[in-house]
Simulated scan of single mutants.
Amino acid sequence: MHNVGSVDRAIRLILGLVLLLSPFLAAGSFAGLGAWRYAIAAVGLVLIATAAFRFCPAYRLLGIQTCARR
């Protein structure tokens, strides 16, 4: 069952791509973060996955649904 709508999905995809790529493309500015840059990339990967599958487990637990009801 889907619980992520179109606008939410687009925002997740864009933000996920930024978070996934920024620690590696701007390595100099993230150099002091050490292992945190991998955590930032992991959050980006989770956002991309939730956008791709149109399902967010946190939304399910909180009873949130941003997609149109059928």
Rank of each mutant, 00 (worst) to 15 (best):
A35K: 06
G5T: 05
L61E: 13
R54P: 09
V7A: 08
G28T: 06
R37A: 01
C67T: 13
A31R: 12
F30H: 11
L21N: 11
F30D: 08
R54M: 03
F55S: 01
R37T: 10
A27T: 07
A41Q: 04
T50S: 01
L21H: 06
R60E: 15
T50E: 13
L47E: 14
L33S: 03
A31H: 12
A10H: 02
T50M: 10
G44N: 07
L17T: 11
F24M: 07
C67I: 11
A27E: 13
I48E: 09
V18R: 00
V7Y: 04
G28R: 15
G44L: 02
V4F: 01
V4C: 03
R70S: 12
L19T: 12
L33P: 00
G63M: 02
Y59P: 12
G34I: 11
L45G: 09
C56E: 07
G28E: 14
A49H: 01
S6G: 05
Y38C: 10
L25K: 12
L45V: 14
A10Q: 03
A31W: 08
L15V: 14
R12W: 00
A42Q: 01
R60S: 11
R12Y: 01
L33A: 08
F30A: 08
A26P: 06
A35I: 14
G63F: 05
A41N: 04
F55P: 07
T66I: 01
R12H: 05
P57K: 01
I48C: 06
I11Y: 00
L47H: 05
G44E: 13
I14Q: 00
V46T: 11
R69E: 13
L21W: 02
L61K: 09
I64R: 12
A41K: 01
I11A: 03
M1A: 10
P23E: 11
F53P: 00
R12M: 04
L17M: 09
T50W: 04
L62D: 10
L45Q: 05
A52W: 07
L47W: 07
C67A: 05
A42K: 08
A26S: 12
A31G: 06
F53I: 13
Y59G: 12
V18F: 04
S22H: 04
T50A: 04
I14S: 02
L19F: 05
T50Y: 04
T50P: 00
G44P: 01
R12D: 07
L13Y: 03
I14W: 00
I11K: 00
I11W: 00
S29D: 15
A26H: 13
F30G: 04
N3Q: 08
A52L: 12
F53G: 02
A41P: 08
V7I: 11
R54I: 05
F55W: 14
V43C: 05
G16K: 00
Y59W: 06
W36E: 15
L25V: 13
A39T: 12
A42V: 05
G5V: 01
L19H: 08
A31P: 14
V4W: 02
I40E: 09
